[in-house]
Each structure stands twice: as structure tokens, then as C-alpha cells.
Amino acid sequence: MSSLVTKVRLKQIEQLIENGKRLDDRGLLDTREIKIEQGIIEKAEGSARVLLGKTEVLVGVKVETGEPFPDTPDDGVMTVNAELVPLASPNFEPGPPDENSIELARVVDRGIRESHAVDTEKLCIESGKKVFVVFVDVYVLNHDGNLIDASAIAAMAALMNTKMPNYEIKDGDLKIKQGYTPLPMKSHPITVTIGKINNHLIVDPWLEEEAVMDSRITFASNEAGNICAIQKGGNSYFTPQQILEASKIALDKAVELRKKLNW
């Protein structure tokens, strides 16, 4: 997913980080500014636009009815899909989702699913037959690095903004009534990604740092400070000590963000 970064720039980023500095004047453990706007797509049941620095992600939530999975007849269904829209980066191409967008969708999905953020038990209409299906569609509009965190925050913000149609069952048929209720939620996971450049850990890498970083590791954590999803990416490694250090940084950062976002 890297863009063209000249070797000169690469050296500069590496040297700055050795001295504890970054190209955009942030400290190694600072996140970029986060701006959230909710409910901007009226036709979607929920939506949110998140700006993480210049990275911009729009998430729309559609709620439909469908069948539950056979192994969970009493649970509603939540799915996450991600589109790396070609207008977001010169490196994104139209076509079916590639491994990067599938990984992005699955990491965002894992954070929400494993923390039981959406209370799927309350989305059951008729056991084994009819449930609400919540489609979370992540739309990357501008790629300036750390799509995972921006998408995870946007997906959560959109879910928190989602309104479910009121309904009643008449003669076995579902009838939509007037009015809406908020989507039932149990938890609010926060996702923090840490990059590794020359054995230095940095929080919230942006595009040019992503191009030179060795690896990244993502932690999603819930209100209780427990870890609910992890994903390592990139073609290098972490030592066990670096992983534990990264997990501490990510959990602390999540507490800080939780306070800031009031989640």
C-alpha cells in the first residue's frame, strides 16, 4: 500500500525517528487529530465520517432483515466490508477487493465482533428464521496512512449513530412501524496501531512512515482495558519484548482516546 517515497525522504524519516522526532512534528507516541462527523448520509441507517489527520474514511451502516447463521439461530448478523476507493490514492485500483481491503475489513470486523460491541442477541426477530443484518461498509476516501485505526473509529462512530426501524410481527409477517430506536450496543472497542521503524515504536503512522516502516501491530481494547483483537502486519518481525511494549502503549493510548472521544 506504499506510495513512492524517495530514498532521501526515507533516510530523513529514519534519522528523525532515531532522535525521537517525526516529519509532521508529532512525538513518537502522538496520534494525529481526530474529527468525527455522524449522520451525514441520510439514506443510511447510520453513518460517520472520520478524519485522522488527512486520512478520511466514510462508513455507512445499512440494516436489513435476513436469515441467521445456522449455528447462532438467536443472533443477528453483523458484517464489515471495506472498499479502497480509487479516488483515495494513486495506488488504489478499481476492481474486486484485494488482500489489503479484505485484511482491513476483517481487522475492523474482529475488533467489533470480539468485543461484542453490537448486541446481536437483541437483533433476533424470530429464532432461526428472521434476524436483522447489519452491514457496515467502510469507504476509504483519502489514504494518508493508518487506515485501520481511522476505519475502526469510523465504523464504531457509525454504529453508535445507527437507528433501527421499529417493528411488530402480525400473522408471522414483519411490519415496520413508525419511529426508530438506537442500535443495541454492549461495548465500545478502540483500535490503536503501532508501527516499527528501525526498532522504534511509533503510534498512528501516516502514509510516508508506512512506506518505510518494517511492520505494524494493531490492538483493539474494550472499556475494561482488556485486549479483544490483535493483528500484526508487514514483512518484518517484532521481538516478544517489543510486542509487550507495543501492547502497553496501545492500551494506554486507547484509554486516552476513550476519554477524548467520550466513548
Partner: peptide, 29 residues
């Protein structure tokens, strides 16, 4: 990679306390 003490894949799903995660990581290694 045991000789290099390098973790090249790490994923997790479910819910773990930080100390449980550390224990699981060490046990897996």
C-alpha cells in the same frame, strides 16, 4: 523464529486481560 527471537505473525481474537495475553504469548513461543 526461535534462533532470532523474532515473532513474525501475531493475531488474536476473543477477550484477554493484558497479563493473560502475556502468558499466552509466552506459552505459544
Amino acid at each position: 523464529m526461535p534462533s532470532l527471537n523474532a515473532v513474525t505473525l501475531l493475531q488474536m481474537d476473543g477477550i484477554l486481560k493484558p497479563n493473560e495475553f502475556e502468558k499466552a504469548l509466552n506459552m505459544a513461543m
